[in-house]
């Protein structure tokens, strides 16, 4: 029997598993691996979902299992952890850099919708958007097209300088 890999080693392997929908950022950079531990001989990986309906969740679990089994882990269990709920604050600095290089503006911390609807109505009524630079030409002449983009975690924006549309990874 081969010795069990160290937890550091497991974290390194998990850092090589990419998000299936944004394949430039790893699961650890995304901040969805909450814990890795051994329970008796079994490796337990705790994963938190991004959005409750995110269709990538099943694929992510499969990818984790495939990767770790590929590295020879035989006894493995995945656990789902809901609390505390995932937040974009957990996306690592390197993850943010990779998102931007990929053409997705990373989350601007502290700007998540928070249910204080009435306080935000005035800003909404004037059509003011978050100020963000176009990931291509860096112009800040950008505007929101829709609060939802190609996936629930992104909003659609467009640059009025270079006319390219782009995604914004919105805060949650």
């Amino acid at each position: 029997m081969t010795p069990s890999p160290s937890l550091d080693q497991v974290w390194q392997w998990l850092d090589e598993v990419k998000d299936p929908e944004i394949p430039v950022i790893s699961l650890t950079e995304l901040g969805i691996i909450r814990a890795v531990r051994y329970q008796d001989d079994e490796l337990v990986v705790t994963v938190t979902p991004t959005y409750s309906g995110c269709p990538a969740t099943g694929i992510i679990n499969l990818d984790i299992e495939t990767a770790l089994r590929g590295h020879g882990v035989e006894r493995l269990r995945l656990e789902r952890q809901l609390s505390p709920p995932w937040t974009t604050d957990w996306i690592s600095p390197s993850g943010r850099d990779k998102l931007l290089a990929y053409g997705i503006v990373p989350p601007i911390d502290g700007t998540a919708a928070d249910g204080r609807l009435l306080a935000r109505l005035d800003a909404m009524a004037t059509g003011r958007n978050l100020v963000m630079a176009c990931p291509r030409c860096r112009s800040t002449a950008t505007e929101k097209i829709s609060q939802f983009g190609s996936t629930p975690c992104k909003a659609s924006y467009r640059c009025t300088a270079c006319l390219e549309p782009f995604d914004y990874f919105k805060c949650i």
């Binding site: 979902p49 959005y51 409750s52 809901l82 609390s83 709920p85 937040t87 998540a112 919708a113 928070d114 249910g115 609807l117 935000r120 909404m124 609060q147 939802f148 629930p152 919105k170 949650i172």
Partner: peptide, 11 residues
């Protein structure tokens, strides 16, 4: 978990 999504729905 759900309320973070609903914040965006209601906005």
């Amino acid at each position: 978990k759900a309320i973070k999504e609903v914040y965006y729905h209601v906005e």
